[in-house]
């Protein structure tokens, strides 16, 4: 097909879609109207189960099965990334050079890390009360850990990131969700039914299974994102092609332009814990980062 014909097909298709969307929009209820049949019922059900955040009640109680699917998407994405970005036989690892990060930035990261971690846990724990929940809080927790790469050094991140442990936590979070659903079957009702006592409205221990499911999702998302980013970081920082003769010398974590940095270009001294090390042109592949 020629380019012209393809453009015509695209134009006809786009025009048809536009017409259909416009026709469909005519049937929609008015924007911001006061008739919300689903909203009213969802709010009623949420209040009956003592869950003050109605969105959490919909996600983790009324439509908890949908959330199981959504959670599995991230699980499968992390799994697929780990498989696709694994270290192949024609690649080898080199130790990244220590990063030169300005001391104020490093200090800020070390202060911000626990604060961000705490905020992430707060978002997870208050999922049934205020906006947020397992997914949002889990992502914040994972981002907090990666402040170590962003503002300190990759090896500092690797020290607190045993990948096997996080992969296991990822699977455990996913399994916990499935098992919590099975609790409903054991109690004699439906899968993922809210079988726990509902608790006092607007307190942390309210909503029955909602906080537990939130915690399971939080663990799954936080460790899933860590595993996901670990594959990306390994590929971007550590893994190089084995057949490339000079790649190991260049594999600077800090400067990927391939030029050596002039010593007076850096206004910061190297990190105190790494000042003794100088980048060697050829690292043996088995030399693991400390």
């Amino acid at each position: 097909m020629s380019r012209r014909a393809r453009l015509w097909v695209l134009a006809v298709g786009g025009l048809g879609l536009a017409v259909l969307l416009f026709a469909a929009s005519l049937e929609l209820p008015g924007f911001g109207g006061d008739w919300h049949p689903y909203g009213v019922r969802a709010v009623e059900a949420a209040l009956a189960r003592h869950t003050s955040n109605v969105v959490a009640a919909v996600n983790f109680d009324q439509r908890a099965f949908d959330t199981l699917g959504e959670e599995s998407i991230l699980f499968c994405a992390a799994l697929g990334t780990v498989v696709l970005l694994r270290q192949t036989s024609d690649e080898h690892r080199v130790r990244p050079e220590p990063a030169r990060v300005a001391p104020p930035v490093r200090r800020y990261a070390l202060v911000a890390l626990p604060v961000t971690l705490l905020i992430g846990l707060y978002i997870v724990a208050h999922g049934q009360l205020s906006p947020g929940g397992g997914f949002q809080g889990g992502v914040v927790v994972a981002t907090a850990l990666h402040l170590l790469y962003i503002a300190v050094d990759y090896r500092a991140l690797e020290r607190i990131r045993p990948i096997g442990l996080y992969a296991m936590a990822d699977a455990a979070g996913e399994a916990a969700y499935l098992l919590l659903g099975a609790a409903g079957l054991i109690a004699g009702t439906a899968y993922l039914a809210n079988v726990l006592p509902y608790g006092t409205f607007n307190t942390l221990a309210s909503g029955g299974t909602v906080p537990l499911l939130n915690a399971a999702v939080g663990v799954e998302v936080a460790s899933g994102v860590v595993v996901l980013l670990a594959s990306f970081l390994d590929q971007a920082v550590e893994i190089v092609d084995a057949d490339d003769p000079d790649s190991s010398g260049r594999n600077s974590d800090q400067d990927n332009s391939g030029r050596p940095r002039a010593p007076d270009n850096s206004d910061q001294p190297p990190a105190p814990d790494t000042s003794g090390r100088t980048p060697t042109p050829h690292n043996p592949p088995e030399e693991k980062p400390t």
């Binding site: 955040n53 969105v55 959490a56 978002i123 906006p131 947020g132 929940g133 997914f135 949002q136 809080g137 992502v139 914040v140 994972a142 981002t143 990666h146 962003i150 994102v225 996901l228 980013l229 990306f232 970081l233 590929q235 971007a236 990927n256």
Partner: peptide, 23 residues
């Protein structure tokens, strides 16, 4: 809730993954 998801994913995670891939 949606805004929070967007903020959590979009503000640091997406740029990090994108720039690592570019690198």
């Amino acid at each position: 809730d949606v805004a929070l998801s967007q903020l959590a994913v979009g503000s640091a995670l997406t740029p990090l993954m994108l720039l690592l891939s570019v690198r």
